[in-house]
Design a protein around this nucleic acid. Sequence first.
RNA 1: GUGGAUGUAGCUCAGUUGGUUAGAGCACUAGAUUGUGGUUCUAGGGGUCGCGGGUUCGAGUCCCGUCUUCCACCCCA
Length: 427
Amino acid sequence: MKIQAVKGTRDFYPPQMAVRNFIVDGWKAASKRCGFVQYDGPIFEYLQMYQVKSGDEIVEQLFNFEDRGGRRLAIRPEITPTLARMVNQQISSLPRPIKWFSVPRLCRAERPQKGRLREFFQWNIDVIGVEDVLADAEVIYCCLDYLRSLRLTSADITARISSRRLLAAVLMNIGIAEERLASIYPILDKKPKIPAEAFEEMLNKEIDSAATVQTIIRLMNVHAVEEIGRIVELNDAARQAMQEVSRLFALLTLMGVGEYCRFDMGIVRGLAYYTGIVFEVHDAVGELRAICGGGRYDNLLSDFGGPHMTATGMGMGDCVLEILLREKGLLKDDTLPIQRLDYFVAYADAGLFDRAVQVTAALREKGFSCDFSYKPAALGKQLKQADALGAAKCIIAGQELTAEGKLVVRDMSSGTQESIPAAQLLK
RNA sequence: GUGGAUGUAGCUCAGUUGGUUAGAGCACUAGAUUGUGGUUCUAGGGGUCGCGGGUUCGAGUCCCGUCUUCCACCCCA
């Protein structure tokens, strides 16, 4: 019986694994550069943990199951609830600020499509306990620092940044009741994905005043903070939120990533729990789904039974990123060596097999990666194998070894070789 | 969950109006090469043509179902 891989999953053969490691290693390096430390949690949690934030409809999009003790569990679709749970458990003993990152493997029971699979990896970074917009700047910077390290330029990608606080202040100022905001955000978030007429129609259903709807439409097209004042009156809350946004952009400019960043009132994020700065990084053309998204969430820890604690963070999946890197020619499988040996030990005569094994073991003991042929093939064959394995150098045990105690060291890229006393090489 | 496209060797694909024993390139293995790799040449292994049913004397080819993959929708933490 032939069994195939489950829908929406990937097999990572060595070449694909090299790609995955390339991405994940970059994530880890960028996190460490920016002072984040790594954490991880279990790959399954109580199902209830994911219902707290998102309600019952989320259950259909989770892989959930019951264990033998009757516990309702789910494979993690995100790691933020786990982060909240872990931080809550040790909140009083953790040094601040809490700057943690993770590269969890996540699963969502959705139908796969371009840039979205049912199992994937997601880089998460979070700063917990820092009220200052500096924390948002650090998160956005770290994310851009990584993308920049892949040689993506501001012509390739854009960080679109807005503020839930600013949006709420402005909307409330033009007559939207606070309790209506939660139902309006998801509509605003859809704007780039639907026709203008459909967007207007959805707003009209939710909002009675046609004039208010027109004002919102104008606001959604704002790409500079100063323009907001020309569309609506500003109250203190709005001015304060604007100052915060301005400071964020000033910080990002100081950090040297200002050219990647644009203010965009249209960035809302569908999720209800965002409370401050929100952002997404998109490809400049805008043909792919978001490369990453994040923002400030001030209520999450308390939602999970902890104290009130401000936090900001972001998540970046591996699928869209890989598509973008391939489109930009920044990721080619053949440039990622799946195995790179320091040495390959060949033996010219079957009688030298034992010596070859000893030499191999000695080189390994010294910390070199080293391999040898398991059967006494012709020397040409062994060199071919050395080449296939990507060996930098090939050591040949031949008559020089028996006659003068010397090993031949062949440089595989140049083809030059020299005889070196075995004792010296293995010293 | 809805719709469209798709499926032939490990990979990329050919396969005539339905007709004998299903092909190529690449990859893999072995040999040409008994002390020197990347090139070349030769040979070999590998397919119940996604799976199941139907039509037919006969199905890779036509019909139905199903699964997979891809694309879009719903959703997007």
